[in-house]
């Protein structure tokens, strides 16, 4: 069965402003509106998920602020992650009542979208059982963390397209001793964000039968 969906591109948006808009969308979907697929980028921000280990922050808050990076706690699963311009952030606001109310399946489908997206760019990526996210060799390229309210999802994926990877030196991404990579790094040149967005929308339509 096909589902209706509203795709929105918020461009570059402050993290907190984006979070408030997400909450409005979540309430709308709970109230019966179409699911939303939101694409955006954020100015540099470290977000601390519900399971953040304080040791995942490798610098004092003052030093992090001096790098022009803000820090905020968020209601998603997982540890700390970084958002910054050049990273495509995807917020699927999906009513999982339509998709079988299965969190594990939902997370796995997000990973499938991510792996297939990278294949579109000639990058062989994998998901690793027990470690959410998507990896290329030993390096991580896509982080995943979601929240769910009344079986409606929020938060989502961060895909490093042309991200300044040096900012990840501030943290242990997702609490792991892992290096981050990007499509730009792997391809040796920046890629057009618009191309990535078009492919993302198409893959979500395929995987979620939208």
């Amino acid at each position: 069965m096909k589902h209706s969906i509203t795709v929105e591109d918020w461009g570059l948006i402050d993290y907190i402003d984006g979070y408030e808009r997400q909450k409005t969308c979540v309430q709308g979907v709970i109230d019966g509106q179409d699911d939303h697929l939101i694409l955006c980028e954020h100015p540099p921000v470290l977000t601390l998920g519900r399971m953040t280990n304080p040791e995942s922050l490798l610098y004092q808050p003052k030093d992090i602020k001096e790098r022009g990076v803000t820090v905020t706690s968020v209601d998603r699963g997982g540890d700390v992650t970084l958002h910054a311009p050049g990273q495509l952030v995807i917020y699927p606001i999906f009513n999982l009542n339509k998709y079988g109310k299965n969190l594990k399946l939902y997370m796995e489908t997000l990973e499938e979208v991510a792996v297939d997206l990278l294949r579109n760019f000639g990058i062989l990526a994998i998901s690793i059982p027990g470690q959410r996210g998507v990896f290329v060799g030993p390096e991580k390229i896509i982080s995943i963390g979601v929240g769910v309210r009344k079986w409606v999802t929020y938060h989502g994926l961060g895909i490093n397209v042309n991200t300044d990877l040096s900012l990840f030196n501030l943290i242990k991404p997702c609490g792991l001793n892992v290096r981050m990579t990007s499509i730009q790094k792997l391809k040796g040149q920046a890629v057009l964000m618009q191309d990535v967005k078009i492919k993302v929308i198409k893959l979500f339509q395929e995987k979620f039968l939208i």
């Binding site: 998920g49 519900r50 399971m51 209601d75 998603r76 699963g77 997982g78 969190l103 594990k104 939902y106 997370m107 959410r132 995943i144 963390g145 979601v146 929240g147 769910v148 309210r149 009344k150």
Partner: peptide, 30 residues
């Protein structure tokens, strides 16, 4: 894993208000 409780023992609650969050597999469920 219960990531947090939004209320403590003795607090008055209304049906439907956020009570706690359960985290599994990098998803936080209200």
């Amino acid at each position: 894993t219960i990531a947090c409780w939004h209320a403590k023992i003795g607090d008055s609650l209304k049906k439907g208000q956020d009570l706690c969050e359960a985290v599994t597999d990098k998803a936080s469920f209200v």
